[in-house]
Amino acid sequence: MQKHSFYTRLAIHAVLIILAVPFTMPLIWMISTSLKTKEQIFPNEVVTSISGFLAEWRPSPVRWANYAEGLRYVPFPLYLRNTLMLCAFNVTGAVLSSALVAYAFAKLQWRGRKLIFSIVIATMILPGQVTMIPTFALYRWLGWYGTYLPMIVPAFLGNAFFIFLLRQFFMTIPDDLCDAARIDGCSEWGIFWRMMLPLAKPALATCALFQFLGTWNDFNGPLIYLNDQNKYTLAYGLQQFLGSYGSEWALLMAATTVFTIPIIILFFLAQRTFIQGIATTGSKG
């Protein structure tokens, strides 16, 4: 693609900056709340100007102690360890297994393909609330209640969302390419591993990102399946600040900031490596 002209670039910057304002709010608000004293968090006064509103976002006095106190309630290193362990398993498992299945749906001819694909899509359509109890019964019967297994093993058996997404990407790759490779004597595994995966890297990275975020933020899994505070994950641990009997917003936001900032940095770096890297190598057609 050609380089944009100076004015085009200026216009794009202008549009993006204006649009970005509401999107930066959660981060700014989170950090600002995390540094406030309890009295400042939800001001009651009506403000009549923008500057008045901006002033409300500025913590004064700044209370750094929220961080120390927030991290005291939650055993951060322990929960981080638990969370990262789950993330590692889930990302590897879900991305690899989903890619395999997606390849079968997109590029292989086999009897039952359409049927199985329809069933996979259908599993996403039934609201999860009504399968919770039978699912729980199943895991309990397997003896997995109180362990991480209900949150790990299914990831290795394909994720319908990723399968569908990767299928869409594999479909855009011309069949001729696969056929040529087949004529060259390449095995299906070889085509999948050496051709498809590298070509679909942006999509794979997207799946990895979503799975990571999904596991990182998962609340229901730990809630339902874990009964030991030492096994909790960060996302579930953070709920310790939100109670039926009043919530510690400043502490919650301090802990949430510590919980979120690494992910923002990770995303920033990852999108550089994967999304941008592919533009130079990913050429097909």
């Binding site: 079968a104 009897r111 393909r113 394909g158």
Partner: peptide, 13 residues
Amino acid sequence: TGWLFASPVVIGL
């Protein structure tokens, strides 16, 4: 081959 590649999701189902 097709069923083999699809086997994770088939087992999952």
